[in-house]
């Protein structure tokens, strides 16, 4: 049983001093699926970046622990080895560096054997609908949006973290890929032994029809303004973020059907 505990987390953009996160409290345990939803500019991407230690942000207050171990004091790679994993919104292309090569190094960092890796990769690729030829090709280079997210999900399944942060897993995904990726995450969170804890950060509702959250949190202007069960997502579906922000919804979400159209 693992717990990611975020307490009073405040963070700003290092270069400008602009405060983005203004006191976040969240707890994610093994097997739980939490959705953090919010409009553009709420601080969703900053939250995932700060949790993983991406350069460019400064934590000004609060703590983040994984099973009691302070994460904020660790460099990014040690957070990953400790069991925290970030599925990126826009997975970076790394020319000339193959996926299997990276995963072999990633397992070595964790003191895990790499001899079964090739076989495991093939099984996972089949399961997630990721073409096998991509396994030996440079990371994310020339992959479509959907292929990139299948790749991210495959890495998650192979690395077996304790807690996964999904940053807008649904962006750039077609409906088939969305279903395949969500189901794989769902399965990982339902495993009998060491089930995955999930923190899914998303703007849109459609991820949550596939990945059923136990808890939904609404993030507005760097603070969680409301927490509840899946019914909160239903409120969003009908009323938009206006119910939580006290103002009209942002154009991005009101035109979400058009966004989706062009994203396919």
């Amino acid at each position: 049983m693992s717990v990611l505990a975020i307490n009073g987390l405040r963070a700003e953009i290092a270069s400008t001093g602009t405060e983005i996160l203004r006191g976040i409290d969240l707890e994610v345990a093994s097997g739980e699926v939490h959705a953090v939803m919010g409009p553009n500019g709420a601080g969703k991407s900053t939250l995932s970046a700060v949790l993983m230690g991406k350069p460019g942000y400064k934590v000004t207050a609060g703590t983040v622990t994984l099973d009691g171990v302070d994460m904020l004091g660790l460099p990014t790679w040690e957070r990953a080895v400790a069991g925290l994993h970030l599925v990126m919104q826009y997975p970076t292309e790394v020319p000339g560096v193959a996926l299997d090569e990276v995963l072999a190094e990633a397992l070595s960092s964790r003191g895990r054997a790499t001899d079964g890796l090739t076989a495991e990769l093939e099984v996972e690729a089949e399961r997630i609908g990721f073409e096998e030829r991509f396994l030996h090709r440079p990371l994310n280079v020339d992959l479509s949006g959907g292929e990139k997210k299948r790749n991210e999900t495959l890495q998650l399944a192979v690395l077996r973290p304790r807690i996964a942060i999904l940053d807008e897993l649904d962006s750039g995904l077609d409906i088939d890929a969305l279903r395949d990726c969500s189901r794989r995450v769902e399965d990982l969170s339902n495993e009998a032994e060491n089930p995955l804890g999930v923190l899914a950060i998303t703007h849109y509702n459609r991820l949550l029809t596939e990945l059923r959250p136990d808890h939904v949190h609404i993030l507005v202007k760097g603070q969680i303004v409301s927490s509840g069960g899946p019914e909160l997502a239903t409120v969003l579906e009908t009323d938009g973020y206006a119910a939580f922000t006290g103002q009209d919804d942002e154009p991005e979400s009101s035109s979400s059907s058009l966004d989706d159209l062009f994203r396919m």
Binding site: V94, P95, G96, V102, S109
Partner: peptide, 27 residues
């Protein structure tokens, strides 16, 4: 971004750097 991506998978900074440089030369 490339360095952070690899480090977020749990690669030590020096390993991430080595892979990125070798990848750069691979072309």
């Amino acid at each position: 971004e490339q360095r952070f991506y690899l480090e977020s998978r749990g690669l030590r900074p020096e390993v991430a750097e080595r892979l990125v440089v070798l990848g750069f030369f691979d072309e």
